[in-house]
């Protein structure tokens, strides 16, 4: 009896909190109108697309997911159901994925927060004959039978482009350090792979170490501060696997009384506006873009797949690199993320 009232209260409070804070607004199902299922729409031409997304993670992700949402518009003949993960939690993604299968959407777009653990969900989608297209993030193990294609900039390519730049910048080699994302994420593994593939051929580059800073600027600052102390500031090159960590590290370099770009050169991946500004400002030395704007590519792919055409299992979105303040300044005015 008492238990029941207690539970009732708890549920009430959760509900109230969720309403008040607008959590429901970003829950699966998205906007109220027309999301009741494929049949609800009066114009039966709309293609329903379920997007299992990562949600708030950073500027890059924001740009990427916004771009996809903008591309798959009703004008283009799509109804997009946007389901971002709750706090980057894979369980919430799997749940959203299942409900898209149950609703019987036409296509599912998936950006997995974690690579492993998708087999059974993808098999269910296959049984329901719903094509799944991976957006950006891959799955592990990478079984290409389970999905139609993966659309992403190539992490290997992007990170080896950073390494190639380093070879030019330091013809005599250098001591370098790597700031990684969280251990176990496929992006981290791929960016390491691309970098290491180049660096393993060049013994003049000495790897001092690698640490995770969880993609975070604050942690990037804190970790690199200690790394500099542990090595008596003797680090020539930092490879930060995302912009945020690189920006934090740049701050640590300054606080240590060193000059970023001279004493320590910092190369980052992503190419956000903040990073390009820092590049223009001389705090970063090299920024490799990891192009988030692949809404168009995704749209074309979806159409091809629905028309029964075949696509490559991996569609690479082309990316740029920026190696000077001037290049950054040039790109800044129309940077969208």
């Amino acid at each position: 009896m008492t238990k029941r009232t207690w539970l009732g209260r708890a549920i009430g409070i959760v509900g109230m909190g969720a309403l008040a804070l607008g959590i429901t607004a970003c829950g699966p199902g998205g906007d109220g109108d027309g999301s009741a299922g494929g049949g609800a729409g009066g114009d039966d031409e709309l293609v329903t697309v379920g997007f299992v997304a990562v949600g708030p993670e950073g500027a890059w992700r924001e740009a990427n997911e916004q771009n996809i949402q903008d591309t798959f518009s009703e004008d283009a003949g799509f109804e997009l159901k946007f389901a971002p993960a709750a706090n980057l939690d894979q369980a919430s993604q799997i749940q959203a994925f299942s409900s898209f299968i149950d609703e019987g959407v036409d296509v599912i777009l998936l950006s997995a927060t974690a690579g492993a653990g998708w087999e059974s969900s993808l098999q269910r989608a296959q049984e329901a004959e719903i094509p799944v297209i991976l957006i950006d993030r891959g799955i592990e193990p990478d079984n290409t039978d389970l999905y139609v294609t993966r659309i992403a900039p190539d992490n290997l390519e992007v990170s080896s482009s950073v390494a190639e730049w380093a070879l030019e910048e330091f013809p005599d080699g250098a001591n370098y350090f790597v700031l990684e994302g969280p251990a176990g994420v496929s992006v981290v593994n791929e960016r390491n792979e691309g970098w290491d593939a180049v660096m393993s051929e060049h013994p003049e580059f000495e790897k001092i170490g690698a640490q995770t800073a969880n993609w975070s600027r604050e942690e990037g600052r804190s970790v690199f501060e200690t790394v500099l102390r542990a090595n008596n500031n003797d680090i020539d090159l930092l490879f930060a696997q995302n912009d945020e960590m690189g920006l934090g590290a740049a701050q640590a370099v300054e606080e240590a009384g060193l000059v970023p770009g001279e004493d320590v050169k910092i190369a980052t991946i992503d190419g956000t506006r903040a990073a390009l500004e820092a590049l223009a400002d001389g705090q970063l030395t090299f920024v490799a873009e990891y192009n988030p704007m692949f809404g168009e590519t995704a749209l074309e792919t979806v159409n091809t797949v629905l028309d029964g055409g075949t696509v490559d299992p991996y569609i690479i979105v082309p990316s740029e690199t920026f190696d000077s303040p001037e290049a950054a300044e040039e790109a800044l005015p129309d940077r969208q993320f």
């Binding site: 708030p56 993670e57 950073g58 706090n87 980057l88 969880n214 993609w215 975070s216 600027r217 604050e218 942690e219 600052r221 804190s222 945020e244 920006l247 934090g248 701050q251």
Partner: peptide, 14 residues
């Protein structure tokens, strides 16, 4: 304290 060190709030990580 923790956001002002880098003058950025990281809503997922802070």
């Amino acid at each position: 304290f923790s956001t002002a060190t880098v003058m950025t709030v990281d809503v997922s990580n802070t």
